[in-house]
Simulated scan of single mutants.
Amino acid sequence: MSVSTSDEMVPPTRRRAWRSSPVLRFVLAQPLGAAGLLVILIMAGAAILANRVAPYDPEAVDFMAMLAAPSFDHPLGTDAFGRDILSRIIHGARTALSIGFLSSLLGCTAGGLLGVTSAYFGGKVDLILQRFVDIVLSFPIIVLALVVVAVVGRQPIAGIDLNLIAAIAIPIVPRAARVIRSAALAVRAMPYIDAARAGGYRHSHIILRHMAPNVLAPYLILLTAYIAQAILLEASLSFLGLGVSEPKPAWGLMLAGDSANFYQEAPWMILFPGLAISLAVFAFNLFGDSLRDWLDPKFRM
């Protein structure tokens, strides 16, 4: 009497459904991207449950534990104020991911609409918009963010640094617009766009209902890629004192101030926040590159 395997015990319809799952196909086709996604999910889970998983209050000062080396009580050590570094890194994930996601979402959405509009109208409208994009692209992204922060300042509203989010999103807009415009030009040449215009539909209707959905794939790739850029930019601004302010935990802020003064005596103050930034940026870049390969038909076998 033969013993049936677990795969044979599963109904054929369920086996086909599982094997055709887009998640499973992505994991099998892009293992590095799946690893990056796993790291992102772990960070997101830690950020959401920060109040429960963090062993200490990230803002609690303990002068009896100043510059404590990594130990059982403080796995990643403490800073110059006795604050637990592990707790601040966990809560800093909430700051980095929220600002990174909102900045990338705002910048890519505005840039995507700008690129689609430019490709749809063409002619002088496209010429003017693209020359404006060229001017903005001539500035390095960090310089442009510094200028925006210097102009609008910092004014958190309901705990959200809206001005900081805007300062990071604005440099993303022209970069997203240039990429989305390239994809939208191919969509604009499709016969159904001319048919919609001949049918008397409004320009806004054609742009939002017929063109924008057809550039969704490059939009999602840009959204993922620029989250990593936004996290790095937020950390840079916080390091320079133009981002998140004390005592709010932020990875870039943890690298500034006293960390630079005690890097020889307490190297863990710089090491672990730097690893958190590098890991987050690396994970998003891995996932973004794999998502591009998976969605682009040219890369499919």
Rank of each mutant, 00 (worst) to 15 (best):
H91F: 15
V244D: 04
R88C: 12
R131Q: 00
P70V: 06
L49W: 10
S259N: 07
S2I: 13
I193P: 00
P218Q: 01
Q264S: 15
I206S: 04
A169M: 03
R25L: 14
V39A: 06
A184R: 02
V281M: 12
A29C: 12
I48P: 07
P11E: 14
L113M: 08
G115F: 03
D293K: 10
A228F: 04
N285H: 10
R83K: 11
A198D: 10
A217I: 11
T95N: 12
I270L: 15
R52F: 15
I89A: 06
P22Q: 08
V116P: 03
A17M: 11
A235I: 07
H74M: 05
M211G: 01
W294E: 09
A60I: 03
A186K: 01
P31N: 03
D126P: 10
A44V: 14
I170N: 04
Y201H: 14
E234V: 13
N163G: 11
R178V: 01
N261K: 15
A150M: 11
V23N: 05
W251F: 13
G243F: 11
N285S: 09
Y263R: 15
V143Y: 08
M301V: 07
L216E: 04
I141E: 02
S138E: 06
S6N: 14
R94P: 08
S103Y: 02
L86F: 00
D134Q: 08
G92L: 11
L253P: 02
T117V: 10
S278E: 09
I85P: 04
P31F: 06
R175F: 00
L185C: 04
L146I: 13
G100H: 03
L114S: 01
Y219K: 05
G243E: 07
A283W: 04
P218I: 04
L237A: 06
A150F: 13
I48F: 13
G111L: 01
D134F: 09
L113W: 01
G243W: 07
P58N: 06
P12F: 11
M66K: 15
A169N: 04
P273H: 02
M66E: 13
R202W: 10
M211E: 00
P31I: 06
A69G: 14
L208M: 03
R131V: 02
L137A: 01
R188T: 03
A189K: 14
G111K: 02
L129V: 12
Y201A: 12
P55Y: 06
R175T: 03
A283M: 06
S204V: 08
F72A: 13
F239A: 08
G243M: 11
L275E: 01
W294C: 10
L253F: 07
L233S: 02
A119K: 02
R14Q: 15
G115V: 00
D296C: 13
I172E: 00
P58R: 06
H74Y: 07
V173T: 05
K124M: 13
M43D: 05
F272D: 09
G111R: 02
L271Q: 11
Y263V: 14
F239T: 09
A212D: 00
A212H: 05
M43F: 14
G111M: 01
S182A: 12
R178H: 03
L32G: 12
R181V: 03
G115A: 00
